[in-house]
Amino acid sequence: MRLRSGGGRKVMLFWPNIVGYIRISLVFAAWAAHQSPAAFVPLYTLASVLDGVDGWLARKLGQTSRFGAWLDVLVDNLSRSMLWSLLFQWGWLVSTLEWCVFVCNHSTRGPDWKSSFSSSPRLIRAIMANGLWTPLGVWVVSGLHGLPLWLYLHQNDLLSDWLGLQPWVQSVGTVVLAAGRVMALSAEMWCIWTHIHYLTSDETEDKKLTT
């Protein structure tokens, strides 16, 4: 589809979206340097830190957009998919799950998907409350984003060599982040289930999920 001059092109050049393009470049650079932790970790970490910058810019400059919301999650998934595939042979399973949830949320819940869980089970509502900006939500997001990087550091002995963490501290950190990731999994499975329900219901296709 050809973009009309003005609207579409202007949105694509919003500053938050430019940050998104920079993040994509950093992810690919990290991929190319994955065998060198000294290069990989800073590149991947910077891409993750900028994840908060684009949202702040969008609100500060009044440049929120459906494209920006889509791009933000796309880059998140791209970075985590890359890392999971580097960590384990079965890492593609985690990537597949996350991309499936991405499709489910953005095809039926839309750009405001984070605020569309008011009628969900209590745990899901608690996780998604205030756009994930609660202690529980931060824990879940930490597991989602932090666990693969933590495991990369562990596999390369960087938790001890760089951070000087004792083995028991590393184990506790792994358990805490894994627990957050498991809670994220519960929300992901709920998103997939409600999407399947939406697809198999008699409702019109253009009706958005409100569960």
Rank of each mutant, 00 (worst) to 15 (best):
L132P: 02
L50A: 08
T194V: 14
G131S: 10
R4F: 09
F88V: 13
N17H: 08
D112S: 12
Q170V: 07
D206E: 13
V175R: 01
W168M: 13
S186K: 09
G68M: 01
R4A: 12
G110M: 01
S95M: 06
V141D: 01
A178D: 01
V141Q: 05
M12W: 11
H195C: 11
V138E: 03
G55C: 06
P37M: 01
M189N: 00
V101D: 10
P167M: 01
M128Q: 11
S119A: 14
L209G: 06
L199R: 13
G137H: 04
A184T: 09
L136S: 09
V19D: 11
R9C: 03
R122S: 13
V140Q: 05
F67S: 04
T96D: 06
G146P: 03
V94H: 06
H195I: 00
L61A: 06
L177W: 05
G68C: 02
A179T: 15
R109L: 05
K10Q: 13
P167C: 03
V175W: 10
R2E: 12
G55Q: 12
A32R: 15
P148M: 02
L165F: 09
V49T: 11
W15Y: 08
L50Y: 04
L46A: 11
W15C: 06
H195W: 15
L26H: 11
Q166P: 01
T194H: 08
G173Q: 00
S36V: 14
K60A: 11
S36M: 02
T134A: 01
I18A: 04
Y21I: 08
Q166N: 11
E203A: 12
D76H: 10
I192Y: 06
G68Y: 04
T134F: 05
S160R: 08
D51Y: 06
P42Y: 02
V175T: 14
L74G: 03
L57Q: 10
D157C: 05
V27M: 04
R59I: 02
I22E: 00
N105F: 00
R181S: 12
L159Y: 04
W113H: 10
I22W: 08
S119L: 10
S201N: 08
V169H: 10
D157F: 03
F117V: 08
D72E: 05
L209W: 07
R109P: 07
C191D: 15
Q89C: 02
N130A: 09
E205L: 15
A38F: 07
A179V: 06
C104M: 09
S119R: 15
V141T: 14
L50V: 07
P167F: 00
G7W: 00
L199Y: 06
R109V: 08
F28Q: 06
V75Q: 14
A69I: 07
L123N: 06
S186L: 14
T200R: 13
Q155I: 07
G173K: 04
G20H: 05
F28M: 07
